[in-house]
Design a protein around this nucleic acid. Structure first.
Lengths: 342, 342
DNA sequence: TCCTTCGTGCGAACCGGTTCGACAGTAGCG
DNA sequence: CGCTACTGTCGAACCGGTTCGCACGAAGGA
């Protein structure tokens, strides 16, 4: 494999001159530059990443810590990963991926051995074990997901509170007065998935303010349990005319459930979900939903991370906590409440 | 950040001695070794990955080239990625992930700049553009998916021919004489997804031998199209009593379709799919299926790749092409054909 | 004409590891 | 007792880049 020494020799210059000719960090005569470039082409030279990392202490690699927790919807995680990966590549960075259960160990390995210039943490929990490790590391980090303590990191998340309000307000405005909210499993919350209750509490509060009855339940993450639970909760609240879903499995199961019960949305029941458009397309879910924008969030995290890595954001520049405003994608599953549910 | 020089100084030895004490590649007195180890702990020393890579020309990183092609089921790809990732970690390797559309460029970048010791290619097509690049690279490669030309690489794939035969034989043995096979979209085949017709042709041949009628169709990768197509093909062949699915979207859509038509499996229709158990669990698909074992395939590819990287498999050792035998996971969706389809 | 300045290129040091060869000191052996 | 063998350590070189300081020649100004 050709080294810069080979390039220099073929071009008839010194190694340092070859380096400068390629980086452009010093003035080089056109003649020499062209000779160097010709040598590069002739030899098929590509700089050795390890050597460059050693010399510049820049790896041009970003760590991506994904964790696939039980009862969280794996395909959703994939969307975040893709958002991070494609944006990173646009900015010239590669991705070192970890899917280890023990995220702290993976993070420590990556940062301590200086394999990466910065790191993106996905699916950050309320009290995430990885955060102390990240704060102790010399590399900057960006999070997707809102922890209790945001010091020292840049944070991006969907505004789940606003999402909860939006769901309730939307149906209230259409005339609904009794709603059901199906969240993700309760132990996801207990594990630190704060977004579940962030949405739920805000929805509750909005319902209270509007004088709307809201039945909030936790649903399973799998069929057939979630199907049974949906049936049960619809049985339990025959007066409810709107269904809010903050649970991918519930959304995927709902078509069958509604069909079994002979219900149609929005004629008999208005439905609003909270998931990504990609998810909706893959499973062709016909429900209006709050776009969770995983690719966008992942992209934002990477962009900010790269700004910090490249020092455009001075180390002193305050860290950001940015919430993406939820947007309701109308797929026609909401309307005026029926006089009486079938 | 502490370097091995710092460790050496604190331990009162030379850099080389510190290095040997840690690697164990030469005899070191217990006294010195303990002093070095103490210094490591005191300073929190971790070797710099770039420097080590430069010195040893081993990065302990494996490239993972995933491509998310249109109309291929993304969550399935994720399962392969997870299989690769977890096995790599078990063997001490990290994963450099590329999801670029232009796989050749990503591959060239990774190999030429020596960021990786080897590479796993997912979703390999019949005539995959990445293969010439891989063969020209100094690093070994392992594929998941069967290309036309396997020289110079290790190949792992599900035995799709056997899978096709197994599906047909299984239903034939139960007494079925007219079957429908729904494959993935035709343009997936045209793009080089040979596994589609490998299964289909073998199923056709098995049907011919057994005297079974087989209606083979290509299905869409999305709802609602695939739902309509399933209805149409069931309408078109009222005598068919068995349904074979080599199409994740079709499997996901089938529960609703069957419900709409008032059919139940296996009473009215026997169903056999071809997807992973993980997929079945996530969407709670009640159909028996040929396990596509993505995690296992990914793991096998990595294991073989690491053997080559670490030279256990001499460079001369012949490359392997290994097919995983399909296994039918019985979820109770097949049985004797009904006297007459409802 | 002499001195300064600028444009170019070179040599050497450095990044942080690993590894080879040399060399004391000690043990083993006849 | 002298020779060999082995153990344990060190110094130096090397991996392949980048970057700093310096030198040299030509151009420009006084």
């Amino acid at each position: 494999m050709a080294t810069i020494g080979d390039v220099a020799r073929v071009a008839g210059v010194s190694r340092s001159t070859a380096s400068y000719a390629l980086s452009g960090k010093r003035a080089i005569s056109v003649d020499v530059r062209q000779r160097v470039e010709a040598a590069v082409r002739e030899l098929g030279y590509t700089p050795n990443a390890g050597a460059r990392a050693l010399a510049t202490s820049q790896t041009m690699v970003i760590g991506l810590l994904a964790q696939f927790l039980e009862d969280e919807f794996a395909p959703a995680m994939l969307q975040y990963m893709l958002g991070v990966s494609t944006t990173a590549r646009e900015l010239g960075y590669d991705i070192l991926l970890s899917t280890e259960e023990d995220g702290t160990r993976a993070l420590r390995r990556m940062t301590d051995s200086r394999m990466i210039d910065g790191v993106v943490l996905l699916n950050v929990a309320e009290h995430d074990e990885r955060l102390p490790v990240l704060r102790a590391a010399p590399q900057p980090g960006a999070l997707v997901g809102l922890p209790a303590d945001c010091t020292g990191v840049d944070v991006f998340d969907l505004d789940f509170e606003e999402a909860g309000r939006l769901m309730v307000d939307h149906l209230h405005r259409l005339g609904h007065r009794e709603l059901i909210l199906v969240s993700q499993p309760e132990h996801v919350v207990e594990r630190g998935g704060a977004y579940v209750w962030r949405l739920q509490n805000a929805a509750r509060e909005a319902a209270r303010v509007r004088g709307v009855t809201l039945h909030a339940v936790f649903g399973s993450a799998r069929q057939p349990e979630i199907g049974r639970e949906l049936n049960a909760v619809l049985d339990a609240h025959p007066g409810a005319t709107g269904l809010l879903l903050n649970n991918e499995a519930a959304a995927a199961a709902l078509p069958t459930v509604l069909h079994q019960r002979g219900l149609a949305a929005p004629q008999d029941l208005s439905v609003v979900g909270r998931y990504s458009d990609e998810f909706a397309r893959t499973f062709s879910l016909p429900y209006s939903s709050i776009e969770s924008a995983p690719d966008r969030l992942g992209g934002m995290a990477v962009r900010q991370l790269v700004r910090r890595i490249e020092g455009e954001a001075g180390t002193d520049e305050p860290h950001v906590v940015r919430f993406v405003s939820p947007e309701l994608v109308d797929r026609g599953s909401t309307g005026a409440p029926p006089a009486r549910r079938a």
